[in-house]
Write a protein that binds this DNA or RNA. Sequence first.
DNA 1: CACAGGTCTCTTTTT
DNA 2: GAGACCTGTG
Length: 738
Amino acid sequence: MTDIFEGLNEEQKKGVLATEGPVLILAGAGSGKTRVLTHRVAYLIQKGISPYNIMAITFTNKAAGEMRERIDNMVEFGSEAIWVATFHSSCVRILRRFADHIGYKTNFVIYDADDSKTLMKHVLKKLEIDEKRYSPKMFLNAISNAKNELMDPETFLQGAMGDFNEEKKGQVYREYQEQLRSNNAFDFDDLIMKTVELFKRDGEVLKYYQEKFHYVMVDEYQDTNTAQFELVRLLSGGRRNLCVVGDDDQSIYKFRGANIYNILNFEMHYPDATVIKLEQNYRSTKKILAAANDVIRNNNGRKEKTLWTENDEGEPISLRQFESAFEEAEFVVDDIERKARKNEFSFGQSAVLYRTNAQSRLLEECFIRENVPYRIVGGVNFYSRKEIKDVLAYLKTIDNAVDDIAVQRIINVPKRSIGQTTVNKAVMYADSCGISFYDAICDAENIPGIGSAANKLKGFVLLIQSFQSFLREGKTVPELVKEVIEQTGYVNELRLEGTDEAKGRIENIEELVSKAATYQNDAEEPTLSGFLEEVALVADIDTLDTSLERVTLMTLHSAKGLEFPNVYITGMEDGLFPNEMCMMDESEMEEERRLCYVGITRAKEHLTLTSSRMRMIRGETRFNNISCFVREIDEKNIKGDTYIPKKKPLVDPFDAPPAKESPNAELFKRAKPKNFGTKIEKNPLDYSEGDRVKHAKFGEGTVAMINDGGRDYEVTVDFDSAGTKKMFASFARLVKLN
DNA sequence: CACAGGTCTCTTTTT
DNA sequence: GAGACCTGTG
């Protein structure tokens, strides 16, 4: 075994040594937190702790895989016995064993966001709720939030206190849960919540795990939600050797229920906690780090810490503003090409980050045109592509026909003349008999008013049964996948289409076959359920292979945890980043700022920030100012390159100063905080307190208060239906009524 | 029942 | 600008 403490700094050593009791490691970006975690595990094993008693939880499979690999390199044997897994896969593993203790079968299926949405639509239909007035998304959000807070439908309903909308949400939640159960399915949030429920309801099971896990470690702790907090608390409740690692400045998943107070208040939950701060950064240059600190310093409510580094001074950050998003994309690709040619940074060393997935399209087109190799992380997840979901729905149906959503998805795909009316009749029959949809169509001839469609349903059932017996003959998962796409004529249909799109779909299906083959080879005991499960829990980032010499394109969110020598953050514009939706709320603004901090700290040697004055967003041309985050960076840490507009400046309807053929000085003048932007220049308001106004998103309301906030007016409005909101006048774009 | 063509909404981020 | 959804026609 290698010397565990070699090359660690004092604080890192402390983190490795503090094995007993609760420990909070506040690890700044690039401070070697994964290193501490892996060395800590190695140290535990060296001390004689059985690997079987160690658990490490991460958020992504990629992080879990990397951790295991690094531990494996350090210890001689036993690393495979350590429980290293994501929150979700850990819960699946537990539920596969004990789900029957809480009224589910252990061969449950896992619903992704898409499946949940489909199910929600069924629920709304059943409860006769008008989708137009109440969007499925709204309910799904409410349910997800409730689950993240461990609130079951009954508690939710009690909390509604007669509020009409809350009651409605509660009823939908209840029905949604009932349908999940009858489909023997868990959605993503259930996996965590139901595991906690299992632990709370069944002391024996909890005790089993508490006695198993003597040492529990959690990575990226700042992203945990309340349910995950509770899960961790319970799991580590035996010996209380809980070590959490995280950085409150990198908490960027509030929208997904992450509770930043889990980390901020760790010492309140565990008063005897040892707290260790890792502040030395090994990743970035001094300039990049200084810029990151310049930005994050503007947040309140954070644990005070300042990252420092012994690395080189480095180049100041580059700032570029362009007339259009097209020019911006062109510049980024050209610059990457140029740097690759000069052997400064290879393609694989460069990454392009953006706030929204939609921004990737323009960039992608440029990469293709310039013939620069690239890869995009995220966007449409491989497993959420239509053709993949279709094939998977077949597999789910073959595996467990209890899942109505899967069966209904493919009953008429490819077309076999089973229309909506027939499906509806079967649904009604299933409901009235209290059986599953699949069981209903197995009994097709008894469905009232079914007529000649019965034969078609029978045909479908026979098809599924033939697959099931195919599997029983001992055929493997990849063989089954091939059989399905052949027998159903799915690929054939695509082949006949002959379009590029269809070809792409066929390629994707072939990719799925090879994924099945890989699974068949790698899994200890390959089963169809096992394959479906693995597939349900992969994130886009998991498949990122950084060894390929390609430029990586991804959102700032996906970039967390990664590092690249040469990084571009594009779309540094007010309204885009920080996003318009977040600019009205201080805490959301802080989250955006943390996201910016995450982005900046991905860069090791060179960082370029770009923005465009004009951009199409949702088919609408927008004129944006340079992001306020850029303005927070001290002038000495950033330099605006000479900017020569390629075209005549376009006329800006908001009367922005035209981009001049002038170097830094002019660019900077516009980027200074003083000039908060042209569109948002402080204009006298045409409404005053007491006036009726209209907001694009919140509807109509009454102005309650107007405060002069310096650069802008802060307006408080009581909206008729959206409640009271405080917002900046320039962004709110309130329109006076009457 | 299938398909074509129109309308509507939306996106900020995702395990 | 794209995808989801609806409607009318064959």
